[in-house]
Design a protein around this nucleic acid. Sequence first.
DNA 1: TTCAATCACGCAATCGATTGTGTAAAATAT
DNA 2: ATATTTTACACAATCGATTGCGTGATTGAA
Lengths: 349, 349
Amino acid sequence: MKNNKEITIYDIAKELNVSPSTVSRALKDHHSIGKKTKKAVLKLAQERGYQPNTIAASLRSNKTTTIGVIISWINRPFISSMISGVETAANKAGYNVIISQSHDSYENEVANAQALFASRIQGLVVSLAMETTNYDHFNQFVKKNIPLVFVDRVTEELNADKVVIDNFSAGFKATEHLIQEGCTRIAHIGGAQQRNVYRERREGYLAALKQYNIEINDDYIVENPVLSSEEGLKESEYLMNLPNRPDGVFCANDTAAVSVIQYARKVGIKVPQELAVIGFNNDPVTTIIDPPLSTVTHPAIEMGKIAAMQVLGQKEHKEIVRSQTIVLETELLIRESSSRRKYHTTSGD
Amino acid sequence: MKNNKEITIYDIAKELNVSPSTVSRALKDHHSIGKKTKKAVLKLAQERGYQPNTIAASLRSNKTTTIGVIISWINRPFISSMISGVETAANKAGYNVIISQSHDSYENEVANAQALFASRIQGLVVSLAMETTNYDHFNQFVKKNIPLVFVDRVTEELNADKVVIDNFSAGFKATEHLIQEGCTRIAHIGGAQQRNVYRERREGYLAALKQYNIEINDDYIVENPVLSSEEGLKESEYLMNLPNRPDGVFCANDTAAVSVIQYARKVGIKVPQELAVIGFNNDPVTTIIDPPLSTVTHPAIEMGKIAAMQVLGQKEHKEIVRSQTIVLETELLIRESSSRRKYHTTSGD
DNA sequence: TTCAATCACGCAATCGATTGTGTAAAATAT
DNA sequence: ATATTTTACACAATCGATTGCGTGATTGAA
């Protein structure tokens, strides 16, 4: 078996006594190739199991069929679902997806961007690392007109497309809901404020309090750069031991919200009667925890799909439409953890 | 700004009045290049921001720095963690990772394998689709000596490396645990039996029953090809309405096990007193559900890392050591859902 | 001083597909 | 029958990096 050698258009050309250019054109159904020649080429290519060498084509055309994705951690529900959307859409368009994790570190993010740039990706989907405050490593893509789309964790400092949700409005609605459930001392566990998502959610929270004439108490507002389970427990302990402890908490993610419920259970605070809790993301755990956690849905898969389509769609244009921001709808999911007036399991109001 | 043109070794060569081959060799620290020349080349390359064109190098060397991954769904805890491990290890070795989802469909898996093969990946990590029973689409990799490693869901029908856990033993231990907790009517919710993981877990279950002289009741054994929440509820309903309903259930994944607990709660069956439940995977939900779910841990991230290292490690060898199977340890995590004798939250026995 | 190593580098082919340009032959028009 | 298109293909350059082979110059040895 001479499986070592891949079959090329030269092999086919030689066997058919035509030139490689004819084979190349025949394979792409070029008009200037005769019908019999085309058929013969197609047939032989089929028989020999010809596989076009995409590397060679890429070298010649200076194009690849690959897009890159940079995210914090792939093994998080929102992220992996988002990537699933990217992969599905890209795959449908015949593109490969290279993923790389920043592990929420700025340094890694820079290194990943370099590596992907060197790999000549045709587009890049990014959800920023928690740490990142400098965005220079993305400029090379902008300069070379490589489509760059930010998802969820975005920045205004770059002239790039964005696919986001309305975090302000979602934060507002979540907080408003707690108010309508009768909460008067509403706390907020937020994330790193340099990240738009956490900043905007907090702003929505503040705006809701203001609108309903509820005094803002800085003691009730914590900023946690990790928002893990463990950190969530720590913040819960802090909040629950305040002199005048909160009767409602809006958490910037579900992980922290689950921790609040677990802490409350441990110290005997009743949820939602004594403490209403609402999270963010609609992670799978929200329906498992007892009581089920109210939250805000993120259309993760769809965000990924749209981001991929943005990246691929604008590829053709010479004049790129920059700074397009696509805002997707969120939904307030009211479950038992925040239903102080009545006890539904399904969405109310 | 003439950012359109990438800078190449030819540009550097011309500017320094040397040949491109000298530049190429200087950049790789070849011994036959003089020190001053090397320094000059490195310096200019640095200044001009030279980025080696990996596409051209790939064409010449017939090698890429890319490995592929085919999995069912990326947005599942075990899978995304496994990929995280693959990505981390591959990245450290300077490799890119292309992922593609089969969505558990055979057709997609075949298409993905083709696409990755055409992309000239240097290695492939696969966790088989639920449906797959024919493995011909992987033969092309074997024939071309492209490292192929199966993870978790493997097959014996191919001469390839495998990274697995001892599913039989894990199934045995899980069932034995239920027996030791006093269960006498132990049911099993299993997955598609053509997949080794589900087959072996069931065999472990059967072996444990046999060893402890417990009669095997076929009514207690169900095979579900999906093992989703919904399907888990259906199977729970079936099992709990049997004339002599089980007092213990070993589920082949945590998703189904959680459904069992939820169903039991709904119909007022006490877990673990009336029904002990144990799952598999140690998904995040296992610590959220009430009562916490006993389960078997999967070292997901490590499996991914090892798979990646297998793929990359054997790259150098000319004579490939085939059929190496690496078996990783699992751990029985005993939580409240199966602790009928005593109530611990931590591991017992 | 002369011959042989060693050093430092250039030449040119190669990887496979693509594409602008050129050119016979066949088809159509005048 | 001659001029003009059209058809159908070949030639050769190109994309950028790599590498076997060759060669002039320098160094060391005898």
